[in-house]
Design a protein around this nucleic acid. Structure first.
Lengths: 220, 220
DNA sequence: TGTACATCAGTGAACGCGCGTTCACTGATGTAC
DNA sequence: TGTACATCAGTGAACGCGCGTTCACTGATGTAC
């Protein structure tokens, strides 16, 4: 029988806000579940996440997450939204590093895009797996559109278009080219295709990115 | 109790090679399992495939696939290898449509790359999920490298490099830019990002591709 | 041409596992008076 | 300031399910003599 629990391995599972007292209430369970989910994603990708593992990691019962998030999509949407917030921040910082030159801003954003994907592969993977998320999650929708607007801003300035006007077809093409390029590079790198290519004589993976970024649109 | 099977719903599960006789031996089980797996991938993506569903579809016992493929990775590797064969064929045909102009060949390949991904989303998804495949599968290795060489060929001709020489850094950058661009576009399209973008005023998804392909490297 | 036997191809019941979800419950917290 | 009570937050056992894998088995096929 496997019904008895493994003895003596109980980690202190809740924070004790004052002194050593154990609380029935966790106090910050919502945030703790999000953090645990990020760890799970990092370790096993989207497929490695389950709605049981996250509470287990926090030391809480399997039914606890339902209280805060409903189901898996609810929890993952929260994680993805936080990912997009950080992503948008990274893109904005890169954009500022580009100074007054829109072409340089675009290249800096491209480098930051790939860097984010490689530094946070789990977040990145999840962020573009909307099928795992709740399409009605407002925070996710807003955060992702925030990130997109940073890219669109640089394209707009490169094309000399004012903020409100619709994009011209040429500007649209440049936006798609830039976005697709860095997005594809990130995927190829994460899927191991670039390592496989590096078996042949050629530049090291680290140099590949800057060689490619030379082809980000310079003018519109 | 659920032990009894649903009555009267047994499809004829094996081919009867001569007349109506039912064989104990399937005759073409290997191919049938591969075909069933492709259907499963199409319906539910990589996550929708299981090693039990494929034989169930063919009308064969759950332990049958082990005989031919060992495990899930073995079966999926076969599917991925066939996918890469078809992919390489599509790229080669596109390359030929480009005639004597290497830049045009590259653009045609780009269009074919995306078209293949959108027409065979399940195959495409699996082909770049090597974690689901057996890294030692020889057919898969060869088929994928065959596809890659079609792309490399056009880049080489665009740069005026002979077949055997290593790629120059500039040629490498162009190769990465072209590949990443179409690969990223395919992913963005399959993940629904382009549809989401199409909510705003802008070109229709069908036009997006050709607007982007204008940015495929034209010279090296 | 016939027969014995090895090998091949597939069966089907059984295993233990982790999953998502449900359910009646209980301990802690906040609020009204 | 004290008390009653509603609400909130989390428990833990139980459910039915589909999964991958194992196992002894058996029917069909191919080969040697």
């Amino acid at each position: 029988m496997k019904l008895s629990k493994p003895a003596g391995r109980k980690l202190p599972r809740r924070r004790a806000p004052q002194g050593g007292r154990r609380d029935y209430h966790h106090g910050a369970l919502r945030a703790a579940l999000v953090a645990a989910s990020e760890d799970l994603l990092l370790e096993g990708g989207v497929a490695g996440f389950t709605l049981r593992k996250a509470p287990r990691r926090v030391g809480v019962s399997p039914s606890a997450p339902a209280h805060h998030f409903g189901d898996a999509a609810g929890l993952l949407s929260e994680v993805a939204a936080l990912g997009f917030e950080a992503f948008a921040r990274a893109l904005r910082e890169a954009d500022e590093r580009g100074g007054a030159d829109p072409a340089r801003r675009l290249r800096e954003q491209g480098a930051a895009y790939v860097a984010f994907a490689l530094r946070h592969p789990a977040r990145f993977q999840l962020m573009f797996r909307r099928d795992k998320c709740d399409p009605k999650h407002e925070g996710l929708r807003q955060a992702s559109s925030k990130a997109f607007l940073v890219l669109e801003g640089a394209i707009r300035d490169l094309a000399g278009l004012p903020r409100e006007s619709p994009l011209t077809p040429a500007a649209f093409g440049a936006l798609l080219a830039a976005w697709s390029m860095v997005h594809g590079f990130a995927h190829l790198a994460l899927d191991g295709e670039l390592d496989r290519m590096a078996g042949q004589p050629g530049p090291a993976p680290g140099q590949m990115l800057s060689l490619m970024l030379a082809h980000v649109p310079q003018e519109i």
